[in-house]
Simulated scan of single mutants.
Amino acid sequence: MVDSGGRFVAIGNCDGSRGTYQVNSVRYQGSCVDTESPSIVKDGYRLCLEIHLVRERCYVIPARGWITGAPRCREAGTVSVVDIVAGATDDSACTRRYQWNKWYSFDHPRVVYCVMRY
């Protein structure tokens, strides 16, 4: 887990209840193979990260900076993930079965998150 400043806070998990990034690779020296991917340094190791958000979980997605888990869902400035479309670049493949009002596109990995923004 990282905080909004990108500092390591704790180890997360894969079900989305803790953490917003997953480790893609670990480097002892140098930069990540994908130089555009986010990374942090912990105990001398560079952890190369990728965004890992989970359906029905709530987050804070700032215009710039690190995505964090929302302390409380459905508060102003939070989003709830409704759909995840791997490989997409726009909202055309987002679900039409459930209501959402905003989408975010990321390149590392390439994915679109369709969300309900509060």
Rank of each mutant, 00 (worst) to 15 (best):
R55A: 04
T78W: 06
K42F: 07
H52Q: 14
E75I: 08
G87H: 10
L49R: 02
V41Q: 12
S80A: 10
K42W: 05
W66A: 04
R64C: 02
G44H: 08
L47F: 13
C73V: 12
S39A: 12
G77H: 04
D43W: 10
C58F: 10
G87R: 13
C58L: 05
G87Q: 11
S37D: 03
A63W: 11
R74F: 13
S39N: 12
D43H: 11
W66R: 04
K42T: 09
R55E: 11
L49K: 02
S37L: 03
C58A: 14
D83K: 03
I67R: 08
T78D: 09
E75V: 11
G77P: 09
R46F: 01
G65M: 09
V54W: 00
G65N: 05
V79A: 02
V79G: 01
D83R: 01
G44M: 06
V82L: 06
V54G: 00
S37H: 06
A86M: 11
S39K: 05
L53D: 06
T68L: 08
I67C: 11
L47R: 09
R64H: 11
V54S: 00
S80K: 14
R46Y: 01
I51P: 06
S80W: 01
V79P: 01
H52V: 00
V54K: 04
L49S: 04
R74P: 00
L53F: 10
W66D: 03
S37N: 07
A70I: 07
V54P: 00
P71V: 13
V85R: 07
